[in-house]
Design a protein around this nucleic acid. Structure first.
Length: 423
RNA sequence: GGAGAAGUGCCAGAGUGGUCGAAUGGGCCUGAUUCGAAAUCAGGUGUGCCUUCACGGGUACCGGGGGUUCGAAUCCCUCCUUCUCCGCCA
């Protein structure tokens, strides 16, 4: 949620920036500003009436104390109308605040100056590409066939016990999952991220805090009896750790990481794009999260992207870095880099990480602030990134490192798996 | 799940209808004292919204929400959380 401050001070520039997302924000912006004017007007009115009421109440109290009962009673009789007017205005004010809040919630984050305008993922900007795509020849198999051949993943068992999109990992496939999680967590730890094991079910306030609610309501699994949501990413519980907090300047930056399973309903398509591990209802991910002072947040974003690149290099995977265009940029993000690994057998790029700076967009919803050098509360900047999501990494690992004799485990991962090949 | 108790500022803790945003103590900040420090003394120390060029002023907030009242931290309802005891249980 953008701050009213930005809207009031910078309406035209904001409209301009939002146009990069391919939307015309003007009607919404104007509506919010109109509501704002009325809200302020009503606020003034209601505050003045309350001031009048408070003064009268004090007066009545004083009269009673000094024994002037008749005068007190007389004054009291005059108060009835005032009370009702205050009540009515209070109600109106609540409505206005609610409407303004709802309208503000519809407004996506303002894209950073470097975000290219564009409609879809075809307009994303390729920032860099590294690692050699392997030449596997005609014998190359897609990961779902490799997973089957080496008995690493049982997709059909998953269908039986849960449904499509819930793979069952077995044997070395299960060990590979565990090894990757441990590897990612160790790297995050070495980079200064404190590890957390958060709840996997969160309340609606947390969903709102990070922006999954209300706009992605249908994408989360919801336990209706207890009104809890299964987390779609560790971003939700980790970022909400600091919801409502007023931090000291010295507390920043805060760096967190955590491994969790992630649950996504992903109502939608079937076909080759979502085959195998490409798109799942449940998957594992290690997430890194940072809370930063505004002036440092973009430097931090670069550090995070570089962290993820380091992981991909050590896994010996060819990858590229994209700067998302306005049309592909997430609702809550100001700037996002996607990291994609080359899927050799599928012949396409797979997104394995998304690293974003939300600036104050989440912090405003979260009400997460810090006391700045002037002693004034100021919204922090929040950032997060996958480091990394497992399924597509596994897919890329199987496909890129396949040999006639089996799957080669990258050197950096061998201490974690305990084996150097899968055959 | 059942019974009881409690939730107040950074912390401890007072306040049970009227100048209470809230005593007192601790912490923290500033100043005095000191060569410096400790100790001591003086002052300061929440947030949101509205308003003001500014100084300032108004209003709301004592777990959340609602209600009673001229007036609520204080009374009532409801929800949440914590603690104690019982039950159940990985």
């Amino acid at each position: 949620m953008l701050t009213l401050q930005v809207l009031r001070n910078d309406r035209d520039a904001l409209e301009q920036a939002l146009s990069k997302r391919g939307i015309d924000a003007a009607p919404l912006l104007d509506r919010i500003l109109t509501l704002d004017e009325e809200r302020r007007h009503t606020q003034k009115e209601v505050d003045d009436l309350k001031a009048e009421q408070n003064a009268a109440s004090r007066e009545i109290g004083a009269l009673f104390k000094s024994g002037k009962k008749d005068a007190a009673e007389a004054r009291r009789a005059e108060m009835g109308g005032l009370k009702e007017r205050i009540h009515a205005l209070d109600e109106r004010q609540k409505e206005l605040v609610g409407e303004q809040e709802a309208a503000l919630l519809e407004l996506p984050n303002r894209p950073h100056a470097t975000v290219p305008a564009g409609q879809s993922d075809t307009d994303n900007e390729v920032v860099s590409e590294e690692g050699a795509k392997p030449d596997l020849g005609d014998a190359a198999l897609p990961h779902w066939e490799l997973a089957d051949r080496y008995k690493l993943i049982d997709f059909e068992a998953g269908v039986k016990i849960s449904g499509a999109g819930f793979p069952v990992y077995r044997g070395k496939g299960a060990k590979l999952q565990r090894a990757l999680i441990q590897f990612f967590l160790d790297r995050a730890d070495a980079a200064g991220y404190e590890e957390f094991i958060p709840p996997h079910l969160v309340n609606a306030d947390s969903g709102r805090g990070t922006g999954q609610l209300p706009d992605k309501e249908g994408q989360m699994y919801h336990c209706a009896d207890d009104d809890l949501y299964l987390i779609p990413t560790a971003e939700v519980p980790l970022t909400n750790l600091y919801r409502g907090d007023l931090l000291n300047e010295g507390d920043l930056p805060i760096q967190l990481c955590g491994y969790t399973p992630c649950f996504r309903r992903e109502a939608g398509s079937y076909g080759k794009d979502v085959r195998g591990l490409n798109r799942l209802h449940q998957f594992d991910k290690v997430e890194i999260v940072r809370f930063e002072k505004p002036e440092n947040s973009y430097a931090a974003l670069d550090v995070m992207v570089e962290h993820v690149r380091g992981l991909l290099r050590d896994l010996e995977l060819p990858f590229r870095t994209l700067r998302l265009c306005g049309g592909d940029l997430g609702f809550t993000s100001a700037l996002t880099y996607d990291l994609e690994v080359w899927s050799a057998a599928q012949g396409r790029w797979l997104e394995v990480s998304s690293v974003s700076n939300f600036e104050t967009f989440q912090a405003n919803r979260l009400q997460c602030r810090f006391r700045n050098s002037e002693g004034k509360p100021e919204l922090v900047h929040t950032l997060n990134g996958s480091a990394l999501a497992l399924p597509r990494i596994v897919a890329a690992l199987l496909e890129n490192h396949q040999t006639p004799d089996g799957i080669r485990v990258p050197t950096a991962l061998q201490p974690y798996t305990g084996f150097d090949s899968i055959s």
